[in-house]
Every structure is written in structure tokens, then in C-alpha cells.
């Protein structure tokens, strides 16, 4: 189980994604506007594990703004960007800023929802492993510090 925030201005999309991800056992919240989403992200406690956001809502870099807000709330929250076909350039821009991945909404012949479920799992896996790595590093650091003090 992970905590997922779905941000999309299309109600059908929010409903469908929430239902599908809930079926996988995730705890899903949704937001329909960039402004609302930014508020929810900064107020979240604990922070979301995964944020699934549309790239283009009120403006063409809504996705990028959300990504920045998410990273500043918790650097380990993974962001998956949903993009219309052909907007890959924007999605690539998001990846450069640290998004986990992007998913094109309208790829003919692909069941994108199954793909998203998969990506969410992968992102969650990454989040776990990163946090674990960081914890291990911290533990190591503490041990090193301890041994230094003992000496």
C-alpha cells in the first residue's frame, strides 16, 4: 500500500485512476486543479509516496510546477507525469527535474491503466529502496560516528 495523489483536470480520469489504484490497495487522493494540488501537497502529513499528475492543465507547465512542489515537500516522493501524445518534450523536461517517469495517455493499443499500475509499483519500489539506502547510509554514518567517539 502507498499513498498516492492523482492530479488531473478531467473528472473521468480522476475517478478512473482512483478506482484502479484503490483496487491495488493504494490509498488515493485526487485534485482537479494545479492550485488545489499545490496546497494539498504542502499540507500533506506524512508526505505522499507517489504523485501522478497531468502535464498540461491550466498552463503548459502545470506538471513542472507540481513536480517542484512535491520535491520541496519530500525529496523521496516519486512523480509520474501523465502526458498527451506528442508532448514528450515537456515530459522529458520533467524527467530532467527528477520525475520518475512519464506515461503517454493515448497510446493506441496499450491499456495505459495497467501500465500506470506497473509504473506506480516501480516508483514505490524505487522510493522504498532509496529511503532504505538513505537510512542505511545514515545508520552507517551513526555507527562511524559512534566508533569515532569510542576511540
Amino acid at each position: 500500500m502507498c499513498r498516492v495523489l492523482v492530479i488531473d483536470d478531467e473528472e473521468d480520469v480522476r475517478v478512473a485512476l482512483q478506482r484502479r489504484l484503490a483496487r491495488e490497495g493504494h490509498k488515493v487522493s485526487t485534485e482537479g486543479t494545479e492550485a488545489q494540488a499545490l496546497e494539498t501537497i504542502s499540507a500533506s502529513e506524512p508526505p505522499f509516496d507517489i504523485v501522478l499528475t497531468d502535464m498540461l492543465m491550466e498552463n503548459s507547465d502545470s506538471g513542472l510546477n507540481i513536480l517542484k512542489a512535491v520535491v520541496s515537500r519530500d525529496i523521496f516522493t516519486e512523480v509520474i507525469v501523465l502526458t498527451a501524445y506528442g508532448n514528450v518534450a515537456n515530459a522529458v523536461e520533467c524527467m530532467k527535474h527528477g520525475a520518475f517517469d512519464y506515461v503517454e495517455k493515448n497510446v493506441p493499443g496499450v491499456d495505459v491503466y495497467e501500465l500506470i499500475v506497473l509504473k506506480v509499483d516501480q516508483a514505490m519500489e524505487q522510493r522504498r529502496s532509496t529511503t532504505q539506502t538513505v537510512r542505511k547510509l545514515e545508520e552507517l554514518r551513526r555507527n562511524v560516528d559512534k566508533s569515532k567517539r569510542k576511540k
Binding site: 478531467e10 473528472e11 473521468d12 480520469v13 478506482r19 484502479r20 497531468d54 491503466y113
Partner: peptide
């Protein structure tokens, strides 16, 4: 249109 279709795809998935 793409967005709307994406929503519909979700309903079909369900």
C-alpha cells in the same frame, strides 16, 4: 479529446 478518451479507457478497464 485525448483526455476524455483516457477517462473512458479507465472506465472500460474497470
Amino acid at each position: 479529446i485525448g483526455n476524455a478518451i483516457f477517462g473512458i479507457k479507465g472506465h472500460i478497464n474497470e
